[in-house]
């Protein structure tokens, strides 16, 4: 082909929005019903959690707004004593289930996002170091990763949680519980990021633009952050999306087992744990609605991650 310049030379470069709307990813998105439905569901859930104080009818954790007489009101029915109705019913203490779900989702999402962010940052740093420097640094980091992979990650998280709980003074335990949860899930999840980043770094490192940067005299850390990192982010993004769903489930599992979010700050998992005690005595809604929310959240995020992986991999098209 000829080496002529494109005719758009004199026109200003397209805006970011225009570029995004023209991109293949947006095109693929518009053609995938699964991706669009998942996005709508996930956004709806995330936004309603974010704006919980505006959406929720009551603040379920404000003791002054609670009335024990409202306990065990079935969804949509009027309470026998107070005559109040609740969309999704109430739990044993008279808390509105709809409101507890919204507030619980806030905790679940916060823990999920923060844990994934922690795992991504840790995984990228260790993966870049292992891939770029190789040698003994690579051996140590990747063997540590291998060892950790031999344990189920929920077990690792429980171990970390248990240790953290043991070293924290009892009066602070409830306050730090959320942060310990983030640390535990994040630490159990960094390995897959480190592996992917290491592999991608090995590929990028051998390309000539890295040699050009070395020739200019850039330091290794500048090359890693400025040159290699932007080029390996797309696989990381895909795994992060899928990891988010897994982290939300992991948080729910830990909370369900009673080692996660404390009852004063219940997450979806805590709500499910509370609800399961009432399942067989007829108050099914206390368990059912939080469980459905968790399912919807995890499923939509997971499907979105799956779609993103396929859309970014031209070979699967």
């Amino acid at each position: 082909m000829s080496d002529q310049s494109t005719p758009t030379d004199t026109t200003p470069p397209p805006s970011r929005l225009r570029r995004a709307l023209d991109s293949d990813l947006w095109y693929a998105f518009r053609r995938s019903p699964v991706a669009m439905v998942s996005t709508v569901v996930a956004l709806l859930l995330i936004l309603s959690a974010l704006f919980a104080p505006l959406v929720a009818t009551t603040n379920p954790f404000d003791p002054s707004s609670l009335n024990l007489l409202n306990g065990f009101t079935p969804p949509g029915e009027a309470n026998a004593f107070t005559g109040e109705t609740f969309l999704l019913g109430t739990d044993d203490q008279g808390r509105d289930v709809f409101s507890t779900i919204l507030y619980g989702m806030r905790i679940s999402l916060f823990v999920g996002f923060a844990a994934v962010l922690f795992a991504v940052v840790l995984g990228i740093i260790l993966g870049l170091l292992a891939g770029y420097f190789g040698g003994w640094m690579d051996s140590i980091i990747m063997r540590a990763a291998d060892v950790q992979l031999t344990f189920p990650s929920i077990l690792v998280a429980m171990l970390i949680f248990g240790i953290a709980k043991g070293v924290t003074p009892i009066e602070y335990r409830d306050q730090v519980a959320i942060w310990v949860l983030i640390l535990a899930i994040g630490l159990s999840d960094w390995v897959q990021f480190a592996r992917v980043v290491r592999g991608a770094t090995l590929v990028e490192k051998s390309k000539d633009y890295v040699a050009a940067a070395r020739l200019i005299g850039r330091k290794p850390f500048a090359i890693m952050l400025r040159h290699i990192l932007p080029n390996i982010l797309s696989p990381v993004l895909v795994i992060a999306t899928i990891s988010l769903a897994l982290a939300i489930i992991a948080e729910a599992t830990l909370s369900f087992l009673g080692v996660g979010a404390p009852p004063t700050q219940p997450s979806l998992g805590t709500l499910i744990r509370i609800g399961q005690g009432f399942l067989f005595s007829g108050e099914w809604w206390i368990l059912f609605f939080p469980a459905c929310t968790l399912l919807g959240l995890a499923l939509s995020v997971n499907l979105l991650g799956d779609w993103l992986r396929d859309a970014l991999n031209p070979r699967l098209k």
Binding site: K207, D208, Y209, A211, A212, A213, L215, H227, P230, N231
Partner: peptide, 11 residues
Amino acid sequence: MIFQDPFSSLN
């Protein structure tokens, strides 16, 4: 230095 492969020598 000018490299062989123009597709990999630019970030």
